[in-house]
Write a protein that binds this DNA or RNA. Structure first.
Lengths: 130, 130
DNA sequence: ATAAACCGTGTATCATAGTACACGGTCAAG
DNA sequence: CTTGACCGTGTACTATGATACACGGTTTAT
């Protein structure tokens, strides 16, 4: 199974410009080419893009994924390194959750200040924030 | 109390380019000018930038703040509108928290798959995601 | 009087994650 | 054998929230 870029992008569920973009960003190594210079991809490449997309959904940026792929591509100590990567990201996500919870309760606070008849009063939210 | 842009930006705790940027984005109305064309600001403007910055920290984007300021600047029904703005943002933040919690538990799942001696095995995280 | 500090406008740049388009070559079907 | 679909490269553009810089005019301090 060998694909040219359009079919490959379809298989991966992404735009073909995204594939070229990932190549420029070195998330995908230079693919083999036909004699006319067309990129050709294998099913392994589909799996790699799948990996990128799934880990991206877990909150990793492309530059983090680039480093992570460096780990994937080397055999030594990758298990240890992956564990650390994931642990670090987990801590970041936990912090984001805490931050958002604080914001959520501040928004709730603001709502509590509103009078019951919202037509009749000056706005305490604006006053609180000014 | 009247300020030119540098002192004004200092009072607001932002860069003066940010002030000009907010003006371009219509978050600040066109300021009065000296005869030489220099922008001049009052203490009310400091309060307005303070409002922008505080509400930005609550997760509102500048384009949302732009709409919100439209509410602030009109007197009618602003209390009702503010309440709705804040409620809508609160729901968004709650959703973000839920999403991040799901991600956090997925990251935790991945960690659980790791063997105890991280040197010795192939990496289950990579296998799971591939 | 002159240098330093300040202000104006316009444009460019940063990071992030792509998307779009122009221009030209290649390939397959009718 | 020509048309349409596909591919290549390079460049520009999207949104977001600023930040920086060049070039020229103004104000302030010494």
């Amino acid at each position: 199974m060998i694909y040219r870029i359009s079919k490959f992008a379809d298989k991966c569920g992404v735009n073909k410009e995204t594939i070229r973009y990932y190549e420029r960003k070195n998330l995908l190594q230079e693919p083999h080419r036909t004699e006319a210079g067309y990129r050709i991809y294998s099913y392994d490449d589909v799996k790699r893009v799948g990996f990128i997309k799934r880990i991206q959904e877990l909150g990793f940026s492309l530059s983090e994924i680039y480093k992570l792929l460096g780990v994937v591509d080397k055999d030594e100590v990758r298990c240890q390194d992956m564990f650390e990567f994931v642990s670090k990201k987990q801590k970041e996500v936990q912090k984001q959750i805490e931050d958002l919870k604080r914001i959520e309760s501040m928004l709730d606070d603001l709502k509590q200040r509103c009078p019951d008849e919202k037509q009749l009063h000056s706005c305490p939210i604006i006053e609180t924030l000014t």
